[in-house]
């Protein structure tokens, strides 16, 4: 369908009421994903990624604004949307533990009305592709998280969807499985120009490596949108440094330091691995002396290519993870 976006939203807002409190999970989200795109939504936990996916997959209604999938309104035209979409969620435990991998997949294929023989062929070929041939006749309750997620990927792709929604599909998976899944998704998309994937993640490497375009979402709002390169260009004028500090110290004071736009920090092997984004080089020495003054020893210090994470830090003042 020329001129129509595969996935689209305008002023999409979603609020939840729980215990008298109103949570604005999505605030006026505008999104346009073209056919053939692998579009990424990058954001920390609680940013609203799952909420957005649920709305596009017809599981949740918008509070205001609209969302469309293949030109169909998610609120009213579910009958047109459901046959052409599918989805996978990270850490998903779908299916029945008592059935084997093959049986579970066959069952799900029936919900899409796929003729038995066609379903069996597709399942077999995808089982090969996902390298779980040896698990095909095992009960799914005996599978590991990674093995299970490969089954979930098959479950979504075997129904021949046009648009696939992947909600943190590599959450908690090992490197090998993640890589397999990413490679497959990319390949699947390239096979047919009419296909589209919307993927959410909070792994910036994944977004950077995989996505054609990325929207950074924070607190229900899209704060930046563009190709990974475009996004990274945004902090050309700024300075981003990485450092490893031991022992761990609290970095809260960075918020008030002049010239510092934001920072992220995570613990890694007993050390603190931090990235700090600054307006320019002039703040670097203040940051370094600040760390030492608070009892932190700087194990390593480097200034390198800006990453998506730095973009995120600049835009929101905090890290992704």
């Amino acid at each position: 369908m020329p001129g129509v976006y595969s996935i689209e939203s305008r002023s999409l807002t979603r609020t939840f009421k729980s215990k008298g409190e109103v949570v604005e999970a999505l605030k006026e989200v505008d999104l346009s994903v073209r056919q053939g795109e692998l579009f990424g939504l990058l954001g920390p936990n609680g940013a609203g990624k799952t909420t957005l996916i649920k709305i596009f997959t017809t599981l949740l209604l918008p509070t205001s604004g609209y969302a469309k999938v293949a030109g169909h309104d998610v609120a009213k035209e579910v009958k047109q949307i459901r046959p052409i979409i599918n989805m996978v969620t990270g850490g998903e435990h779908s299916g029945y533990g008592l059935l084997t991998v093959r049986e579970n997949l066959w069952m799900f294929s029936q919900f899409y009305g796929i003729p038995g023989k066609v379903a069996k062929e597709r399942i077999d070929s995808l089982i090969d592709r996902m390298r779980i041939t040896h698990l095909a006749d095992r009960k799914i309750r005996t599978l590991s998280t990674g093995e299970r997620q490969r089954v979930n990927i098959i479950r979504a792709f075997m129904t021949g969807p046009k648009i696939v929604f992947l909600d943190e599909p590599t959450l908690g998976l090992d490197v090998e499985t993640s890589r397999l899944i990413r490679r497959y998704v990319k390949e699947w998309l390239e096979q047919d120009g009419e296909r589209t994937v919307l993927l959410t993640t909070h792994y910036m490497m994944e977004a950077d490596e995989l996505c054609d375009r990325i929207a950074i979402i924070n607190d229900g709002e899209i704060v930046a949108l563009g190709t990974p390169r475009e996004l990274k260009k945004r902090i050309q004028d700024e300075t981003a440094i990485g450092m490893e500090i031991s022992p761990e110290i609290d970095l809260g004071w960075l918020d008030g330091t002049k010239g510092v736009m934001g920072y992220s920090a995570k613990e890694e092997g007993g050390m603190l691995s931090a990235r700090v984004v600054m307006e320019d080089d002039s703040a670097v020495s203040d940051v370094l002396s600040g760390v030492t003054a608070r009892g932190g020893r700087i194990i390593s210090f480097y200034k390198d290519e800006p990453t998506l994470e730095d973009v995120f830090v600049k835009l929101t003042g905090r890290g992704l993870e």
Partner: peptide, 22 residues
């Protein structure tokens, strides 16, 4: 879509039949 729904019925009945026997 009648075929779709018949297949769906069969699909959901399947684990119960198998589960019961297995």
């Amino acid at each position: 879509n009648i075929m779709l729904n018949l297949r769906a019925v069969r699909g959901r009945a399947y684990p119960r039949v198998i589960g019961a026997l297995r």
